[in-house]
Design a protein around this nucleic acid. Sequence first.
DNA 1: CCTCTCAGGTACCGTACGGTACGGTTCTGG
DNA 2: CCAGAACCGTACCGTACGGTACCTGAGAGG
Lengths: 219, 219
Amino acid sequence: MRPDTADTPQFSPRQNEVLEQALRLLVEGGDKALTTSGLARAASCSKESLYKWFGDRDGVLAAMIAYQASKVRTADRSGEKLTEQLLKQHLEQFGRDLLEVLGGDVSLALNRLAIGQTSRDGSKLGKLLVEHGRRQIDRRAMALMDAGKRAGLLRFENADAAYHTFYGLIVSDLHVRMLLGEPGLKDNSRQAERAVEAFLALHGVEQKTADALRVSAGR
Amino acid sequence: MRPDTADTPQFSPRQNEVLEQALRLLVEGGDKALTTSGLARAASCSKESLYKWFGDRDGVLAAMIAYQASKVRTADRSGEKLTEQLLKQHLEQFGRDLLEVLGGDVSLALNRLAIGQTSRDGSKLGKLLVEHGRRQIDRRAMALMDAGKRAGLLRFENADAAYHTFYGLIVSDLHVRMLLGEPGLKDNSRQAERAVEAFLALHGVEQKTADALRVSAGR
DNA sequence: CCTCTCAGGTACCGTACGGTACGGTTCTGG
DNA sequence: CCAGAACCGTACCGTACGGTACCTGAGAGG
């Protein structure tokens, strides 16, 4: 991983405006609705400008991903002294945020777009999406893992593996199901709580007998 | 859930042949490569026949899903008397099979197709895919859960929730990443073993201190 | 031998998209 | 005031797709 300096090319305000419209079109009508003509009309710009700014249609798609990622800034409030309660709260907050992000209109639309194009573009968009979209959230999670371990509240050999375990407990197959059109959960908080409970039973330092979580079942 | 009687409309041998070619085209070139003309050429049939058999292009896609699902038959060898070792083996086998299925060419291609179309068809294909594709595997998993509980080897309140926990431990975000073009794991077995270990720590009856699994980390 | 049905091959049509070219308009800098 | 750039709107082009129509050949049944 490179030290990632300011790697956001950033676009002009006018271009951001256009990309915003592009996202709207994508969310509303999916891949097919995002035509160059349609975008030009919706954004009140000329097709020529689109091609000048973004090169071609794929360039627009890539720019949309970069733009959307640039909007997400996770405020990590590290530096606090972690207590068990605090760690639990942060983990639950992370779970709620993750579920909310993954279930968001724009995220789903962009993921659908990238997945739909994976077969024919050598997963260029997919790579972009994973890198740009995931980096923030991954960083936050890893910071939490490390902080928990340093505070003696979490135990694991491999922070990455622990994080993926946590991720699986939170999301399970929900992401794919939402991508396939199913509605999200009614209660993200509940799901986050259960995931944290299980995660702490696996990697927490306090020996919960893992019985507590068995009574909290119900999907 | 309805008792699902023989609900496979089933197609003629000739039609299966055509659907096989359709799957091949889809796997090789994705959505865009699966044109009616291309399929007719590849399968040596006329477009008119395609439209007579499947109605329209969407009909072909739906038929492909039904056809692919009809090929998968999981042999559930229930009836054995479960021991702890046997349960563990079955769980691990399930995990391996699940990872293999999800990472398979055809599965990925069909999921990409359905996800790509979700925005513009009201998730008709997505529903089809979840129902047809998932039913077998879900049934097998739930049978395992129930058997484990009846044998006194597993503890949970809600079998469905326990299954989803297990699923999340096995798959995590791997499915979505593969859909986005990342290569699969090098070692599915290892992943399955770790998932089972964690699952048993959460829902197994024997009180593992949950320390054992911490040494098995490494992704 | 005749006929009817089914399916393959081909040509065709309308449409809609990606991409380009051009004329007109506004903004900027000197 | 003027020159140049940037940009909008529109018209245009080639292409490729979904879907339809027509013709041909091969069997099936009488």
